[in-house]
Design a protein around this nucleic acid. Structure first.
Lengths: 146, 146
DNA sequence: TACAAATAGTTGATATGTCAACCATATTCG
DNA sequence: CGAATATGGTTGACATATCAACTATTTGTA
């Protein structure tokens, strides 16, 4: 077992625990994880297109089509035609979407703080190190896509 | 944005990049990520039950039922009845499963080394810090399940 | 201008994931 | 012993994910 493999394993494990926590937590708002994050990205970038959302979500655009359909059906999101490009839609939160996202987002922020509250040590260093990890991965990904 | 939220975001992002890389990489062996890891756990723990496998995979047991069905159909895994408990199955790799796993596993190890090769800095420290993160998350999870 | 190429989004097929409800077998305990 | 309870696995329903193929536009360029 190399260091690289150890690093890989623990990063995956941590994600699984975070994800499991998120799923249980967001359940109280009747939101799945992808729905919550869709709301977040639309909240942060009003008028975003489906393709842009798929890039933020690191997910296939066909998946986003169906995710957004669900959010629209539930009255949390609206799609409006872009006047300058007839192919694209602009996504916005409805009142209900805003209100639900505000509640869920605030609670999720606290939940995150709570989850990591027992941690001590140098967070800045850890964050910095993780940023390097991410950068290296993104770099390799971009090389591969050329 | 708090440190906890930053930490959370970057851990999720890193996972997504790792996962995307894995998916593309394992494609050459006609293995999905869950199939590859199922083979790995059965390889490392011959005779493991479906429930035990679901714990290793951090996944619902109903999902494991269908994953293993697929692996069995493809002739990579066999289920044998446990003689001391008529409810459980014991999982083993077939010859084909062994052979495929050996190839894929070796290649995946190299792939991991390659992915992280541009990283410098103190790996031991990073691993140690991540271990603390994981421990805290597991702890909270166990508290919640009581 | 007109045609080729790129981009935005959808659809169908299929794999993976959760959850709830279920059956069969084991275990616990009065 | 025998009833209640727990455990192992399956099934049905449905959400989420990828991929390939498709339509409709827009953009690039000869």
């Amino acid at each position: 077992m190399t260091i690289a493999n150890d690093l890989y394993s623990i990063l995956k494990d941590i994600y699984f625990y975070l994800d499991d926590g998120d799923r249980r937590f967001l359940n109280q708002f009747e939101l799945s994880i992808p729905r919550f994050f869709s709301l977040k990205h639309i909240h942060d970038n009003p008028g975003i297109s489906l393709t842009q959302l798929s890039i933020f979500m690191l997910s296939h655009k066909s998946n986003i089509t169906r995710l957004v359909q669900g959010l629209e059906t539930e009255g949390l999101v609206v799609r409006e035609r872009d006047e300058t490009d007839a192919r694209t839609y602009q996504l916005y939160l409805t009142e209900a979407g805003q209100s639900l996202f505000n509640k869920a987002s605030a609670a999720h922020g606290l939940f995150n703080q709570e989850r990591f509250s027992n941690l001590d040590g140098n967070f800045e260093k850890l964050l910095q190190a993780l940023n390097s990890v991410k950068e290296v991965l993104v770099e390799k990904l971009e090389n591969k896509q050329q």
